[in-house]
Each structure stands twice: as C-alpha cells, then as structure tokens.
C-alpha cells in the first residue's frame, strides 16, 4: 500500500506509446517503381536450404520462414521486387520496405512504421540513400560501407542487417530466375 502511495507521488509519467505510420506499403511500392502498372503480392515459404543460404550470405539470423513481397510489373514484365520486413527496435518492431531492381540492386528503402521515441534518425533520407545501388555482394556493415548515426546505433544496426538479409533473400529466390 505504501509502495502504491509512493508511486502515485511521482510526476505524471503515464503516456501511451503509439505507432506512427509514415508511409503505406503501397506508397513505397509506387515510389520505388513509378513505371510499374501493377504489383503482384507473393507470400514466400522459404525452404530449409534457402534459409541456410540466406543466413550464411547475410550473416544474420532468420527469425521468420515466411516473407511477404510484391513483384512490380510493367506490361507483364518484372521491373523490380518490393519486400516489406520488420526488425527489432528498442521496444517494438520497425517496419520498413526495400525496393530491389531485377539486377539485384537496391532502388531505395523506406521506413513505414516507427514506434520508438528514439533512433528515428534512420528515417533520414541521406542515411537511407547510402543503400541505393548496393547488392548482395556488398558488405553492408555499420561503420564500414554504411555510416552509423551516433545515438541511433541500435536502429541503424538492425535496419542495416535487415536490408542485408533482404538482398540475400532476393539472391536466393530470384537471382537465377
């Protein structure tokens, strides 16, 4: 009872966390591939071999076996792929989208949902622009070929690892197609 009484005496601390959606998946798709006339949704169930290949190439852990992506089509031809993924933030998930062209190079990344009070600098356009043109052969490592944002290290690290994982996924699923 005393504990409760003490706790009630602290400043008004209760605030509700809320998700901030900066962009929808559809908006990201059209931003990455404006020439596309349709986006075909696919749900990929990765095989054990594919999972192992992606983990080895990306040097990350595969948390999920199922991925959601869209093929960008122009006059029936695939002009790119958009993958929507989540990585851990400090408290919740950071939802982001990656656009990859048919050659396996990144067209852009967009942060769709960010639910944290900190580390939001990963939305910075200059920081995200570092990824454009990278492919699965690139190292994509913080403080090496990707600049870290001091004070937002956790978000930078997890988004960088996520992008690396998505490039490896593209390579495993589409590279020979």
């Amino acid at each position: 009872m005393k504990l409760l009484r003490y706790s009630l005496c602290v400043p008004a601390l209760v605030a509700t966390a809320h998700a901030t959606q900066f962009m929808s998946a559809e908006q990201a798709q059209r931003g990455f591939f404006p020439a596309a006339d349709s986006f075909l949704e696919k749900k990929l169930d990765l095989s054990t071999d594919q999972l192992a290949q992606i983990e080895a190439r990306s040097r990350t852990r595969m948390r999920l076996k199922r991925f959601r992506l869209w093929e960008a089509l122009a006059h029936g031809q695939r002009v790119g792929v958009v993958i929507v993924d989540e990585v851990y933030g400090k408290h919740e998930f950071i939802t982001y989208a990656v656009g990859i062209d048919p050659a396996g190079k990144i067209v852009g990344i967009e942060i769709l949902d960010y639910r944290e009070s900190y580390g939001g600098e990963v939305r910075n356009a200059q920081w995200r622009a570092q990824f454009v043109g990278k492919n699965a052969q690139d190292r994509l490592e913080l403080d090496k070929d990707i600049r870290n944002i001091s004070g937002a290290t956790l978000s930078c690290q997890h988004v960088t690892e996520g992008v690396r994982r998505n490039l490896a996924l593209f390579h495993a699923v589409f590279a020979k197609n």
């Binding site: 601390l13 209760v14 605030a15 509700t16 966390a17 408290h91 639910r115 944290e116 009070s117």
Partner: peptide, 10 residues
C-alpha cells in the same frame, strides 16, 4: 527477478 516495461515516453 525483475520486470521492465518501456514505452515511447516513459
């Protein structure tokens, strides 16, 4: 044991 809860502002 301990328990921790973290939200946007507190």
């Amino acid at each position: 044991p301990n328990i921790h809860y973290g939200a946007e502002k507190w």
